[in-house]
Computed example of a mutant assay.
Amino acid sequence: MTVRISSIKKEARDALAGNWGIAVLLTLILVFFAGIVPIMFEIAASGGFENWVNQTEPSSSSSLFSLLISFAMIPFSVSVYWFFLHLVRGKRQSVGDVFSIYASIGTAFKMIGVSILIGIFVFLWFLLLIIPGIIKSFSYSQTFFILKDQPELSALEAISESKRRMKGYKWKYFVLYLSFIGWAFLSLFTLGIGYLWLMPYMQASLATFYNRHIATQGHEM
Rank of each mutant, 00 (worst) to 15 (best):
S66K: 13
L87V: 05
E50S: 13
I22L: 08
V53P: 02
E152P: 05
S179K: 13
A207M: 04
I159Y: 07
I112K: 07
R4S: 12
E11F: 08
F121H: 05
V114F: 10
I116N: 08
S77L: 11
F32H: 03
F41C: 03
K170Q: 08
G47A: 11
W52P: 01
K148E: 11
S154W: 13
L206R: 02
V114K: 06
L28P: 00
S104T: 07
Y169S: 06
I36G: 08
A45K: 12
F144G: 00
L178P: 08
V31E: 07
F145Y: 15
I101P: 00
G119Y: 12
K170F: 10
T2E: 13
A158N: 02
F76Q: 00
D149M: 05
I8P: 00
F84A: 08
Y81T: 01
W82A: 02
G113I: 10
Q203Y: 13
F174T: 03
W171L: 14
L188P: 06
L129A: 12
T143H: 05
I22A: 01
K136L: 14
L188D: 04
I5R: 03
I214L: 04
S160G: 15
L198K: 12
V3P: 08
I5G: 07
L198T: 01
E11N: 10
S79H: 02
A108G: 02
T2I: 12
W125C: 05
L25D: 00
S70D: 09
T2P: 11
